[in-house]
Design a binder for these strands. Sequence first.
DNA 1: AAAACTATCAACCGCAGAGAA
DNA 2: ATTCTCTGCGGTTGATAGTTT
Length: 294
Amino acid sequence: MGRSPCCEKAHTNKGAWTKEEDQRLINYIRVHGEGCWRSLPKAAGLLRCGKSCRLRWINYLRPDLKRGNFTEEEDELIIKLHSLLGNKWSLIAGRLPGRTDNEIKNYWNTHIKRKLISRGIDPQTHRPLNQTSNTNTVTAPTELDFRNTTTSVSKSSSIKNPSLDFNYNEFQFKSNTDSLEEPNCTASSGMTTDEEQQEQLHKQKQYDPSNGQDLNLELSIGIVSADSSRVSSANSAESKPKVDNNNFQFLEQAMVAKAVCLCWQLGFATSEICRNCQNSHSNGFYSYCRPLDS
DNA sequence: AAAACTATCAACCGCAGAGAA
DNA sequence: ATTCTCTGCGGTTGATAGTTT
């Protein structure tokens, strides 16, 4: 059985929104708030499908949208986040208050892609273009890199004896050491309000061009529970980029452990300890930890 | 001036995940 | 456990504006 359509398409308008439609939508949401997009069009007197209303509101009518050109800082932040998250536009948009996923996606495709190519960087892999053609085993630095130090996974089709290589230093990024934390991070003061988001954006804007520090985009997996020190050691700066067989077996075993700490780190050369797993983060611009069982 | 080409971005489509029934 | 509904996401399209020939 196929899915029922989200709306009665035969009786809905499509294409560009009129000012009257916009006003109806704005008025309705002003009174009733967002939510229940399926029933909203009828209630608001709109001949549109709910999805269309939601999109129009989120991408265009929302009062907190920031209009205008992207700043250089936003450009760099988008590039950073894309190198970490890939095409997760909604996640990237979550880091840029006032910007929508659609807007960022469009901007990426029309501007940043070209910008990166002109810098000699592959926009998908964030690696130098002349390297990209040679490295087809891993397409994005955000993926777990299980390449063996001598044999790639694509050749061995096994990850029994891999190295863990989450380091990626591709760009010069300009920032102070202020941390930028994931909104949902349970191990730190979660950013929940617009005010906090604005504050963090302000912090992000305090980049010091003279600093010239390397940004370390680093994803590490650590164990919260017993013997975290061992994993901490495995993930420490000294032991990177590879983990020996014993450590990897330990990690495999640890996968079944109940509490696992996932730490994403974007940072600079300052010392910071993950508040959740106590891993030493050699670079402390951004950290994110979340026990899976929380 | 007009046709052809390019860039931009709003909007649509299909799919997947979450939660309810 | 299965089916269904709703919502949100990412990829893609198409209209329009701007630029070049």
